[in-house]
Amino acid sequence: MKDEQREGRSSIDDIIELYKKDVDRTLLRENLKLTVEQRFEQLMNMQVFVEEAHRAGRKLREAA
């Protein structure tokens, strides 16, 4: 990056640019096709899924 382009940027900007490389843009494009209601329904379904996974993990640890 040229010096003039760096002007006004902080190291935080560079860190965020690095993180951006790992963002799944395909997923974001799919989300953008959904309505707001569908986005929240999807979020709540994910919460249930994560909760179930945690519960299953706890059970396995208790059984071990």
Partner: peptide
């Protein structure tokens, strides 16, 4: 999120900025 300055938010900011770029 940027003002909060928490390292745990860097991933979030990256996603939000990507969303802005997609739109």
């Amino acid at each position: 999120k940027r003002a909060a300055g928490r390292p745990k938010d860097f991933e979030v900011i990256a996603e939000l900025e990507s969303l802005r770029e997609e739109q």
